[in-house]
Each structure stands twice: as C-alpha cells, then as structure tokens.
Simulated scan of single mutants.
Amino acid sequence: MPDSPARNTGAHYVYAELKRRILSLELKPGERIFEPAMAAALQVSRTPLREAIRRLISESLLEQQPTGGVLVPALDEKAVSELYDVRAAIESLMAREACAKATTADIESLAGIVERNAAMVQFADEAMKQGMALHAAIAGLAGNSWAQRFHDQISSQMERYRHFTNNAQERRDVALAEHRILLDAIAGGNPEKAAKVAFDHVIGARDEALRAISGSSLVIP
C-alpha cells in the first residue's frame, strides 16, 4: 500500500512528541488527552494519534480510564520507589560485569565522561546528560543484553522523575563524587565495590526523588 510509510511516519512522530511532552512534564500528571484538540495541535489525523496513544498506554506512559478517557499518569511515590529499586539492582549488576571487561581505553573513555560531568556540575541539564552518559557507557561495557533491555525500559519511565532529583546543587555534587568512586572501582577491577557503589548511588537518587516530590500536588502518596 503506497500510503503505509506515510502513516507509519505520522504515528512515529506523534508517539515521539507525546512521549517527549509526558516525560518533560509539559503534559501534566493527571491531564486528560482530548483526541480532537491534540490532533489539531499536532496537525495530524486521529488515526496516527490513536496508534501513538495505544503504544504509550502499553508502556504505562498513558492510562486508559474505565470511562474510555486517556490520562497522563499521576506521579506515584510507590511507583517511584519500585522503579529506583529495580534500577539499583540492574546498575549494580552491570557495574560488576563491566569490571571484568573494561580495557584501558574503556577506562579512559569513562574518565572523560566523569570530567565532563565535573565541568558541567553547576548546570542541571548538562550534569544530568553526562551522568546518564556514564551509566549508559557502563551498561555498554557490561554487555548484558537482558539487563540493558530492562535498564532502557526503566530509564524511559524515570525521565519524569529526573526533573526532581537533579535540581539541587548538593545532590549533583554528591552524584559526581559517587561517579568518581564508581570509576575508580571499575578501573581497579573491584567488582564488589563497583556493584555496591552503583547500588547505593541509585538508592540515593531514589531518596532524593521521594523527598523532592513528596509535597507535590501531582503525586499520589
């Protein structure tokens, strides 16, 4: 069918844009998606919009209500805690496995990311990008495809919460110090230390996220 690629491209665009708005909190937690208004705003037909909505519902980034309405999920403290707990276990596993595989060149690459993190630690968005780059690089070194798959899924969900965890300069400084210790553990080939540092680092981010959002009207306690 000659128009199939166009439909696919349209659905992908709508999916990517809706996902961006959800994760950036541009679409507020609890906000309802009205199809006619959203289709008009995105300048697309209802068909690619509905395809994108179905996909986002399957990823738990939108919620289908019993009445048929579609909402952006509220920020849920229980879900926050569970996501970070699972990520802590996965990050710990990948840090342990990276120790056994990291070459001198790999260590130099990780060190470069940490130094860029240090240079940008005063800037919330840039510091977050470098932190994410470090964790992604360690995941790549670990080479565990299942851990990587679950890590990517969880990371996508957690995008909505990073806004709350990275705003405080104190937390960014602590995260940088933990990144340095993690790098030293991997460079020194110490899998037990690397695993513990990675686990504790994510749990620290969890606790900060819960503190930051606990008083928000957008959160389900």
Results as ranks from 00 to 15, higher is better:
residue 55 R to D: 11
residue 57 I to C: 09
residue 58 S to E: 15
residue 58 S to K: 15
residue 60 S to E: 15
residue 60 S to F: 11
residue 61 L to W: 12
residue 62 L to I: 05
residue 63 E to V: 15
residue 64 Q to S: 01
residue 65 Q to L: 15
residue 65 Q to K: 10
residue 67 T to V: 04
residue 68 G to W: 06
residue 69 G to L: 02
residue 70 V to Y: 09
residue 70 V to W: 04
residue 70 V to C: 08
residue 72 V to L: 02
residue 73 P to T: 10
residue 74 A to W: 11
residue 75 L to V: 12
residue 75 L to M: 15
residue 76 D to T: 07
residue 76 D to N: 08
residue 77 E to R: 14
residue 77 E to F: 12
residue 77 E to G: 12
residue 78 K to C: 02
residue 78 K to F: 04
residue 79 A to H: 04
residue 79 A to N: 08
residue 80 V to C: 14
residue 80 V to M: 14
residue 81 S to D: 14
residue 81 S to P: 07
residue 81 S to M: 04
residue 82 E to W: 14
residue 82 E to I: 12
residue 83 L to M: 08
residue 84 Y to A: 09
residue 86 V to C: 03
residue 89 A to S: 06
residue 91 E to T: 11
residue 92 S to A: 14
residue 94 M to D: 05
residue 95 A to I: 04
residue 95 A to R: 05
residue 96 R to E: 03
residue 97 E to P: 01
residue 98 A to I: 01
residue 99 C to V: 00
residue 101 K to T: 10
residue 102 A to D: 03
residue 102 A to W: 03
residue 102 A to M: 03
residue 102 A to G: 02
residue 103 T to H: 12
residue 104 T to I: 13
residue 105 A to I: 09
residue 108 E to T: 07
residue 108 E to H: 06
residue 108 E to V: 06
residue 109 S to E: 13
residue 109 S to C: 11
residue 110 L to M: 15
residue 110 L to V: 15
residue 112 G to I: 02
residue 113 I to A: 00
residue 114 V to N: 11
residue 114 V to K: 05
residue 114 V to W: 07
residue 114 V to T: 11
residue 114 V to Q: 13
residue 114 V to D: 12
residue 115 E to I: 01
residue 117 N to L: 02
residue 118 A to C: 03
residue 118 A to R: 15
residue 119 A to I: 01
residue 122 Q to T: 00
residue 123 F to V: 08
residue 126 E to G: 04
residue 126 E to Q: 06
residue 126 E to I: 06
residue 127 A to D: 08
residue 128 M to Y: 05
residue 128 M to R: 11
residue 128 M to F: 05
residue 128 M to P: 01
residue 129 K to E: 10
residue 129 K to A: 12
residue 130 Q to Y: 14
residue 131 G to R: 03
residue 132 M to A: 08
residue 133 A to S: 14
residue 137 A to L: 09
residue 138 I to R: 01
residue 138 I to C: 00
residue 138 I to V: 08
residue 138 I to H: 00
residue 138 I to F: 00
residue 138 I to W: 01
residue 139 A to C: 07
residue 140 G to M: 13
residue 140 G to Y: 03
residue 141 L to W: 08
residue 141 L to S: 03
residue 143 G to Q: 01
residue 143 G to H: 01
residue 144 N to I: 01
residue 146 W to P: 00
residue 146 W to S: 13
residue 147 A to Y: 02
residue 147 A to I: 05
residue 148 Q to N: 02
residue 148 Q to H: 05
residue 151 H to M: 10
residue 152 D to H: 09
residue 152 D to M: 08
residue 153 Q to R: 09
residue 154 I to M: 10
residue 155 S to K: 11
residue 157 Q to N: 00
residue 158 M to E: 14
residue 159 E to Y: 01
residue 160 R to E: 08
residue 160 R to D: 09
residue 161 Y to L: 08
residue 162 R to V: 00
residue 163 H to F: 04
residue 163 H to A: 08
residue 164 F to S: 13
residue 165 T to K: 10
residue 165 T to V: 07
residue 165 T to F: 05
residue 166 N to I: 11
residue 166 N to T: 14
